[in-house]
Design a protein around this nucleic acid. Structure first.
Lengths: 266, 266
DNA sequence: TTTATCCATTCGGTATTGCCGAACACCGTT
DNA sequence: AACGGTGTTCGGCAATACCGAATGGATAAA
C-alpha cells in the first residue's frame, strides 16, 4: 500500500523554509529574532534572512519593528480558513455545529477520518467562559478521543488493530486505554451505543462525546465531537448528550446524502 | 516609512513553492493534477513533482489517489488556527464574539488594524441558515467595510487620505464610496455615532456594523464587525445594533486593559 | 567618553542543488 | 495496435542558495 518512502523530501531549500514557518508558528508570542532562528537551526544568518524575506513577502511570516521580530503571518490564517471553507464536510457541518453548540453549550468540532485517525477541520466554541485548547488540523490520537473511537468503531477489527499498532496506544492520562483488548471492548460498547466517550482519557478534567459521519457509500468519513469540562457532567447527562450528538451527526450525514453503514464487522 | 523594495523576493525556489500552495488553495474542489499545475505555471513536471512532494511531506498540500490530485493540506488549517489562537486580540475577543453572535444572531468578526486596513483574524458564525463568504486573514478594503471605517475614524485626516490613496477607493457596488470628500463626511458621521456602517457598499444585499478596539495607549488596534443580510434590517435596528456592537467592542477594549482614544483629529 | 557585545544587514565566491528534458511505464481511447 | 494523455525516474548542467567575512548601528558595560 505504501508507495514509496514517505519522508523523502525532494526540494531541500523549500523544506528548510517550511521548517522556519514551523519554528515561528510554535515560537513565543513576542516573536523570534533573526539571530535566535539562526542559532536554533544551525544555519547562517544570511540564509535565514533571505528565506524570511520571502516568507514575509508571501505573508506566511510577518516582521514587527523594532527588532525586527518574526511572527506567524496573516496568510496562514487566510489559507487555513480557505482550506476549511472549501472542505465539503466542513461547509456542510458548520451550521449544524453552531446549532449543536447553542443547544448543548459545548465546544463542537468536526473531524475528518484520515486513515483511521481523526483530523479536526472545524470548530465552534460554546458560549461558556471556560476555554481549552481544541486544536484544528492536527492528527489526533484515535484511542483517547471520542471522535477517534467513533471512527474506529466503523472499521473492521483487523483495521482497528492496524491503527492501534500505528499509534502505539500511548497513554495520556491515568484513564487512557493502553491495551488492544481494552480498546476492543470499548469499541464494542461504541458500536452498541452509537456514540463514543472520552472520559478524561486525553486531558484530565475534560470529556468528549463523539458520533460518526458517513458518505453515500456508507463509509465513515469523519465524526462530530462535543467537548466540555468533566465536573459539569452528571452520569445522567452522558446518555442524553450522546443521543444529541448522534442526532446532529446524522443530520450532517443526511446533508451529505450519506447513509449509515450496515457494519460488516469482519 | 517604506524601508526597502517590498517585492524583493530572495529565495526563488521557496517563492515558486509558495506560488504552488496559492495555486492549490485557490484551485477547484476536486483538486489539481500535476500536469495542470505544470501547464499553468510554465514549469517542468519534474520540478513541480519534487516541490509538491515536499509540500505534501509538510502537509501544506495533500494528494488524493487516484490521479493523484492535489488539494490544500491540513497543516494550513493547523497553522491558521494556531496563528489565530496565539494572537492576543483573537484570544481575548473570541468569547465576546460568541456572545455577541448569540445575542444578535449575526456573523461576528474581529479585525486587526494593519496600516489602516482591516485584516480579520477570527470569526463566529451566527445561528442563521444564511451563509456568506466572510474571509479571514485577507486585507480588506477600508472604505467599503464597517470595520475599515471604524478604524479610519481613529486616524488623523491626513492619514485617512494616505490610506485612501493607497487603496484607490475602488468601487465594489453602486453604493460604494469612491471620493475622498464622501469618505470624509462618512468618517465624520462614524466619529459622531461611535460605530460604522457598510450598507451594501462591499457586497449587494449584505450590511455590516463595526466598532473600534483600543489598546492601553488609546491606539486603535482593530475593530469588531457584525454582518447580516440587508433585507432582515429595519432602520430602527441600525441604531440598536450599532450600540450593541459598540458595547461589545468596548468589552474587548476593557479586557485588553485598553482605553478609548481622545481623538486628536489633527 | 571608550570599549565591548550584541544585533541586522550587505556582498562575493563557491559548490550545492534545483531544474529541465528525455525517456519510461501506465492507463484510457481511437 | 497506435495514439494522446497521465505520473514517474534519472542524469547533467547551470542557476542559485548557502556560508562567512565585513559593515553599521544600537545598547550595555567600564
Amino acid at each position: 500500500m505504501l508507495k514509496a518512502d514517505p519522508s523523502a523530501t525532494q526540494v531541500v531549500s523549500v523544506a528548510r523554509a517550511l521548517e522556519l514557518v514551523e519554528l515561528v508558528v510554535h515560537g513565543p508570542d513576542e516573536g523570534l529574532s533573526l539571530a535566535e532562528i539562526a542559532r536554533t537551526t544551525n544555519r547562517s544568518k544570511s540564509a535565514i534572512l533571505a528565506t524570511l524575506r520571502t516568507l514575509v513577502d508571501f505573508g506566511y511570516v510577518r516582521s514587527i519593528e523594532p527588532g525586527p521580530k518574526y511572527l506567524p503571518g496573516m496568510t496562514l490564517i487566510r489559507f487555513g480558513d480557505l482550506t476549511a471553507v472549501k472542505d465539503p464536510l466542513g461547509a456542510i457541518a458548520r451550521p449544524i455545529l453552531t446549532e449543536l453548540s447553542g443547544e448543548s453549550g459545548l465546544t463542537i468540532r468536526v473531524a475528518r477520518n484520515v486513515g483511521g485517525f481523526p483530523v479536526f477541520i472545524e470548530r465552534v466554541d460554546g458560549p461558556g467562559v471556560v476555554r481549552f485548547h481544541t486544536p484544528l488540523g492536527a492528527r489526533e490520537l484515535p484511542h483517547v478521543s471520542s471522535a477517534g473511537k467513533a471512527i474506529l468503531a466503523e472499521l473492521s477489527d483487523s483495521e482497528i488493530r492496524e491503527v492501534a499498532r500505528e499509534c502505539g496506544l500511548v497513554s495520556r492520562t491515568k484513564k487512557s486505554i493502553t491495551t488492544v483488548s481494552e480498546l476492543m471492548a470499548e469499541i464494542e460498547k461504541v458500536r452498541h451505543d452509537g456514540f463514543a466517550i472520552d472520559d478524561e482519557e486525553d486531558v484530565q478534567g475534560i470529556y468528549c462525546i463523539g458520533a460518526a459521519i458517513f458518505d453515500h457509500f456508507g463509509k465513515c468519513i469523519g465524526a462530530i465531537s462535543a467537548t466540555g469540562v468533566r465536573r459539569d457532567l452528571t452520569p445522567a447527562q452522558v446518555n442524553r448528550l450522546g443521543k444529541l450528538v448522534m442526532k446532529y451527526a446524522d443530520q450532517v450525514t443526511d446533508q451529505l446524502h450519506g447513509r449509515k453503514s450496515v457494519r460488516g464487522g469482519k
